[in-house]
Computed example of a mutant assay.
Amino acid sequence: MREIHPDVQAALDTSRELRHRVADMRERADRIFARRPSPSGLVIPEVDAMGRLRDLYLAPGTCARFDNQELAADIMAAIKESAADAKQQYNIAMNDPANLPRPLEEIMRERQARTEADQQVPNFGKAEQ
């Protein structure tokens, strides 16, 4: 069996690292949601980081207290505030220096230094000279 060239292995490792980073970012984003009450305090929506409505709580008797337009305005105000809060949480989580991974070039320099010290480039079946 032939060995994989170190540059090809480095490219494979880099693509694997990037896939893991994307998956980690998605998991972080999926954990973000906001629940901000409406101005009346009777409506509480749950909005995720992408601004999607996940759940909506209406206190008992809310529909009886408001007419259609007032209820819709109260619900929309709560959703807008929750979406803004979720967006802010998302920006903080994604830009937090503690969550930033090591630069890929640093990882590649370390890998290249190990490869140069430990291995010799394979000859891929060519006759040794």
Rank of each mutant, 00 (worst) to 15 (best):
G51E: 00
G41K: 11
L100E: 05
R52G: 04
S15N: 12
K87H: 08
Q88N: 11
I44L: 05
E81N: 08
K87I: 02
V47L: 01
N95K: 14
A64M: 07
D13Q: 08
A78H: 06
A29E: 05
Y57A: 09
S15G: 04
E46Y: 05
E81C: 11
I44C: 05
E70L: 13
K80D: 06
I44T: 14
R54S: 02
M25S: 14
K80L: 12
D85M: 04
G41H: 04
G41W: 10
Y90I: 02
I79W: 00
V8H: 12
A23W: 09
M25P: 03
A84M: 03
D96W: 14
D55T: 08
L100D: 02
R35G: 01
L53I: 11
Q9P: 02
G41Y: 10
V43A: 09
F33Q: 08
P6L: 03
A11T: 13
V22I: 15
D67H: 15
K80W: 09
D96N: 15
D96F: 13
V43S: 10
M50K: 11
D74H: 10
S82L: 00
I92F: 10
P60M: 11
A77P: 01
D67Y: 13
A72M: 11
M25G: 13
P37C: 07
R28L: 13
A59D: 01
R16A: 12
A83D: 00
I79C: 02
F66P: 00
R36A: 08
L42F: 14
R21H: 11
L56E: 00
D74I: 05
R31W: 04
Y90L: 10
A78L: 04
Y90F: 11
V8Q: 13
V8D: 09
M76L: 15
A29P: 00
N95E: 05
